[in-house]
């Protein structure tokens, strides 16, 4: 240690040298699933935050609670519900994948097939959900009685 830093002391200290920033790192698929996991996690957190707030309103006044809940019945809110469903489903399935990578000895070997399974399951559930929820939103908005 002393031998290697003797010459380095004459030059600038390490903190003064820049670090490479450059382009976006083209990481493994696992990196992108990790990024998506974080984003969907934060989105779900914000939903829960709002949900705790609106439920807490009942302590303030039941009328205020009813007003807020009635705004949720607007068809546009279905889009938010759909987004919430998308985030929760991905976060849940990928969470199982991450746990299998951690606890199952063959988990690292099958991380990619497991990711494709997560995406596949997500699509299988999201496509019918999106069709049914969007048709409901559109009929309520435009085809209403």
């Amino acid at each position: 240690m002393a031998g290697t830093t003797a010459t380095a002391a004459e030059t600038r200290p390490r903190e003064e040298y820049p670090r490479a920033k450059g382009t976006l790192y083209r990481g493994d698929l696992g990196m992108w699933s990790w990024v998506a996991h974080r984003i969907t996690g934060v989105l779900t957190f914000f939903f829960l935050f709002v949900h705790v707030l609106d439920t807490a309103l009942v302590r303030v006044s039941p009328n205020a609670y009813d007003t807020v809940i009635s705004t949720y019945k607007h068809p546009v809110m279905i889009l938010f519900e759909l987004g919430l469903l998308a985030a929760v489903l991905f976060h849940a399935f990928n969470g199982i994948r991450v746990m299998l990578i951690d606890f199952w000895s063959e988990g690292t070997r099958f991380q990619r097939p497991m990711l494709w399974t997560v995406v596949g399951l997500w699509l299988v559930l999201m496509i019918p959900a999106a069709i049914s929820m969007l048709t409901r939103a559109i009929t309520e908005l435009f085809g209403g009685h």
């Binding site: 790192y25 990481g27 696992g30 990196m31 000895s105 988990g107 690292t108 991380q111």
Partner: peptide, 26 residues
């Protein structure tokens, strides 16, 4: 370690790096 598998992809010797890290965790 957040198991992003970037290390396994980057290793020029083909070491299953994430697998080794997970074995230490276990």
């Amino acid at each position: 370690c957040r198991t992003t598998f970037n290390c396994t992809d980057a290793c020029p010797r083909g070491i299953q790096v994430t697998k080794a890290i997970q074995e230490v965790k276990r």
